[in-house]
Design a protein around this nucleic acid. Structure first.
Length: 480
RNA sequence: GCUUCGGUGGCGUAGUGGUAGCGCAAUUGACUGUUAAUCAAUGGGUCGUAGGUUCGAAUCCUACCCGGAGCGCCA
């Protein structure tokens, strides 16, 4: 008989049908005449209660059924006698697919720490928290494609292996098939990469932006959604060595169009989660509330997870320039009282995490978009303003996580772009194809990068980025 | 990479010089409907690793490994 998913069974309002379900045991409670199994198949956070009338033969089988075991159950849907669920399954046949020895199976019906579950990432999908997180992750992936598709954007697959070492976004992982114990050498004694697989040095991409711009110069509005790799030795709850990034690039968009798109997209995605992942969000919201109780009063959230998501959907983001932000920070009580580890004195220095958090969480109490940063602290490809000192960059700052989006209007003027490349000693020869877009039919254009896992942190209320990607890659950790 | 806290049964932890205790989970038994059931009993630890100090080390010292938080780099 065909398997019916538990998410479907739980929606039923008519009873009496004999059906087959399959799943994993969450808990088992057996007394003399009746037993209960909470069965979960991952289709929903909720379990199906299976009711079993205990006979000697069944009792023998049930003694092998523990938390984590997999079962096929054939039974009749009945209206629940107990509270806690509407429908339950009266078991007529039970088949044990796979046992889970309780002496070895690490997930027992009790609270486990996220740190412990991270060490058993192969099994953590089976917990409520992680199944909820990864169902939401899927929904967000789908919503991103839907958002851009509905707007007529074209999804572009940019390369994962890149021959360009000038993407300008951080340390790279080298890709090579050379034997490290027997490297071919040139006459000068350097490594001879002409003998490597691609005949040159190649790396894993740190950004698909430059290639994305090429596509936007013909298709007008494109986006990428792929993995990116940074070999930075970053040890924080907000960084991964392998993460997923969404990078739209739009021809004929100026910085304001860019901000409008970023804001509309973020609100769309949060709204999509609220409308399509309600049960999982409610579970995570409660989970976070429990977690908050462990913290001192002054460090606790002022809103629940769901309230915070609703707040973002219903309020415009605050937009201001870097210069305005510096003024606010300089004149803030926090600065005057010396509460910042890095006091704000000078225009021109980059904002620290504490400053971004002050603006978002204390001053405006809503998402903030900062624009027009000093050119010295931003990338070479950003459009230079007429003042000669700032560029049309934009950072979207979110509560709890800080920078969720970084973007800019791109410099479309060939000569200005070239002189910036030369000033920063970026290998000009490597950039020939990028420069040619400004040589032939250049147009004003803009784009940004959204860190997918940072979005996931915000949506799920999880506090460590390693808990919103199935198999996190961080310094000294590539298990599984 | 820096700062800081930590590593004790499967998990969460107490124990700051005299050779380990608690809670949860597990196991067994009881219970005619439970909701991470309840009640009773039982088993389980060379205290991260290596070295040192001491009559004696989970506890003090040194080095290393691993994890958390914060910072830097950024998405």
């Amino acid at each position: 008989m065909k398997r019916i998913k538990i998410s479907e069974v739980l929606k039923r309002t008519t009873f009496g049908e004999v059906i087959t379900v399959m799943g994993w045991v969450r808990t088992k409670r057996v007394s003399k005449n009746v037993g209960f199994i909470a069965l979960n198949d991952g289709s929903t956070i909720n379990n199906l209660q299976v009711v079993i009338e205990v006979t000697p033969e069944i009792d023998e089988l049930l003694s092998k059924v523990h938390t984590g075991a997999s079962l096929i159950i054939i039974g009749k849907t009945v209206e629940s006698v107990g509270s806690g669920q509407q429908v339950e399954l009266l078991c007529s046949n039970i088949q044990l697919l796979g046992q889970a020895n309780p002496d070895e199976y690490p997930l027992q019906p009790k609270r486990h720490s996220l740190e412990f579950l991270r060490e058993i990432a192969h099994l953590r999908f089976r917990t409520n928290t992680f199944s909820a997180v990864f169902r939401i992750r899927h929904a967000m992936t789908f919503a991103i494609h839907k958002f851009f598709n509905d707007k007529g954007f074209c999804n572009i697959h940019t390369p994962i292996i890149t021959g360009s070492d000038a993407e300008g976004a951080g340390e790279m992982f080298q890709v090579t098939t050379l034997d490290p114990l027997n490297l071919p050498k040139t006459e000068e004694g350097k490594i001879d990469y002409t003998q490597d697989f691609f005949g040159k040095v190649t790396n894993l991409t740190v950004s698909g932006q430059l290639e994305g711009e090429l596509a936007a110069m013909a298709l007008s509005e494109i986006y990428t959604f792929g993995p990116t790799f940074r070999a930075e030795n970053s040890n924080t709850a907000r960084h991964l060595a392998e993460f997923w990034m969404i990078e739209p690039e739009m021809a004929f968009y100026d910085i304001n169009d860019n901000m409008d798109l970023a804001e509309e997209m973020l609100q769309y995605l949060v709204k999509y989660a609220l409308e399509n992942c309600r049960e999982d969000l409610e579970f995570l919201s409660k989970r976070r509330e429990e977690e908050q109780k462990q913290k001192p009063q002054n460090e606790r959230d002022d809103m629940s997870l769901i309230e915070r998501l609703e707040f973002v959907v219903n309020n415009k983001f605050e937009r201001l320039t870097y210069t305005e932000a510096i003024d606010i920070l300089k004149n803030s009580n926090a600065n005057k009282k010396g509460q910042f580890a890095y006091p704000v004195n000078n225009w021109g220095t980059d904002l620290q995490s504490e400053h971004e958090r002050y603006l978002v969480e204390k001053h405006f109490k809503k998402p903030v978009i900062l624009t027009n940063y000093p050119k010295e602290i931003k990338a070479f490809y950003m459009k230079q303003n007429e003042d000669g000192t700032t560029v049309r960059a934009m950072d979207v700052l979110f509560p709890q996580i800080g920078e969720i989006i970084g973007g800019s209007q791109r410099e479309e003027d060939y000569n200005k772009l070239l002189s910036r490349i030369q000033e920063l000693h970026i290998p000009e020869k490597e950039m020939w194809w990028y420069l040619e877009t400004r040589k032939f039919g250049t147009v004003p254009h803009s784009g940004y990068g959204l860190g997918f896992e940072r979005l996931m942190l915000f949506i799920t209320g999880m506090s460590n980025i390693r808990d919103v990607i199935p198999f996190p890659r961080t310094p000294k950790n590539a298990e599984f």
